[in-house]
């Protein structure tokens, strides 16, 4: 299972990568493999300011629908437009081309409250 060291994680199996005040959010390799083929990603919160834990969109596999939760407070700036035609990018490259949204962080310090790669690894090990 691929769990990059440079990302922060949530119990809901999302990852976040910060670049200053901006951050990218997606779902983990473990999440995509559990869900199976992703066929639809819907994000209708672009331009909205959301709190951590708020639902910013939904992701659908052939047989399931899952909510997507924002890991930290922030404004949703952009959704990955490539996913409209190629939602399978989430399966193929969950930490790269399969990113879901770009956000403006309200408080970068909140990142410290999230799980490290080691924490997340322990979490999914307990799940399996």
């Amino acid at each position: 299972m691929n769990i990059p060291e440079n990302l922060k994680y949530t119990k809901e199996h999302e990852w976040i990568r910060s670049e200053g005040e901006i951050a990218y959010v997606g779902i983990t390799d473990y999440a995509q493999s559990e869900l199976g083929e992703i066929v639809f990603v819907e994000v209708e919160t672009v331009g909205e300011k959301l709190a951590s834990g708020d639902v910013f969109g939904t992701i659908e596999a052939v047989k399931t629908v899952s909510d997507l939760f924002l890991p930290v407070d922030g404004e949703v700036l952009e959704v990955n437009a490539d996913l409209e035609d190629k939602p399978e990018l989430v399966n193929e490259d969950p930490y790269g081309k399969g990113w879901l949204v770009k956000i403006a962080l309200s408080d970068a310090a909140q990142l410290n409250n999230l799980l490290s790669a080691a924490d997340y690894k322990a979490l999914i090990a307990a799940n399996v």
Partner: peptide, 16 residues
């Protein structure tokens, strides 16, 4: 439920 799921064939709505 190893990943948050809301509806569909494998998982019930109330699971959320």
């Amino acid at each position: 439920p190893r990943f948050p799921r809301r509806a569909g064939w494998l998982y019930e709505e109330k699971e959320l």
